[in-house]
Amino acid sequence: MVEAGGLFSALVTGIGIGALYALVAIGFSLIYKITGVLNFAQGQFALLGAFLVVVLSTSLPFWFVEVQIPVYAAVVVTILIGALLGVLLERLVFRHFIGEPVLSVIIVTLAFVGIIEGGSRFFISAQYRAYPQELQPGWSLSLPLDTELQAPFVLGVALALLTVAALMAFFRYTVLGSILRASASDQQAAMVLGVSIERTIVIAWALSIAITSIGGILLAMSSGGVGYTIADVTILVFAAVVFGGLDSIPGAFIGGIVVGVLRQFGVYMGEFLMPGLDSVFPMVFLLVVIMLMPYGLFGTERIERL
């Protein structure tokens, strides 16, 4: 039955896993905040990051080249590749949609869902891949009431907080951060100050994919390896950002935590009530939020009508 220790433990783990959702959600919010695009492939980018680490660090035959670099280097390289992918996508894809309705780019992200998943099945691996030992740290943080927070969650909470603080400072205190917010609010008025829209798109996607990769890697670490279920995080991220306000970075963080906790409570209650509550809770929450506060906690009133 319900007891304090179990509830507290669910809360702690929920916050931990919520921080990982938060990282992916921050990536989502960044793109929306700067370019107005809802990225339906957010989970796929997390998946890609999680997979790349295994590919780079184990001698998995990778198509025709065989690479193997130290694990920690692989993590760094993965994040860099994520950023590079953002630059590449702008060059190859998004540039051609400047001036088109934002809906066309949203449809493009739907295409990414299939392309990334299919691509990684073909080029990387079609199965679950266990993470190397170095990325399965055994330590954990001891908390009161006999609860523990596993290493990936500890890292997740720390990195998510750090990312939120860094991004908030960037948007609040730098010229570039201000101009990015400015061009989100009035693109033409920003252009006559010398802003290039291509550049804002590059910044949005490069930062987003890099941060999302970190989230993906930590999600994989928390379950010991990477499988295609990681991509399902998209739907939880939607719940998180709708709650926080689509274009708010701190909102995405808080939303991620709330969704994580709800999910963990679902898992905990599912043990003696009925299974499946862990997927129900966050979605019921999403529905209630959309009905009661369509702009979320901190969102500006430019929400996309879905």
């Binding site: 917010r181 033409q188 008025a189």
Partner: peptide, 23 residues
């Protein structure tokens, strides 16, 4: 065309933007 959700100071700051070189 002011940037409405930015403060007056942040609006002025945007005038400093030149290829993002100004930090």
């Amino acid at each position: 065309r002011v940037f409405e959700d930015l403060t007056v100071e942040e609006n002025l700051r945007c005038g400093l933007y030149r290829d993002g070189r100004r930090i």
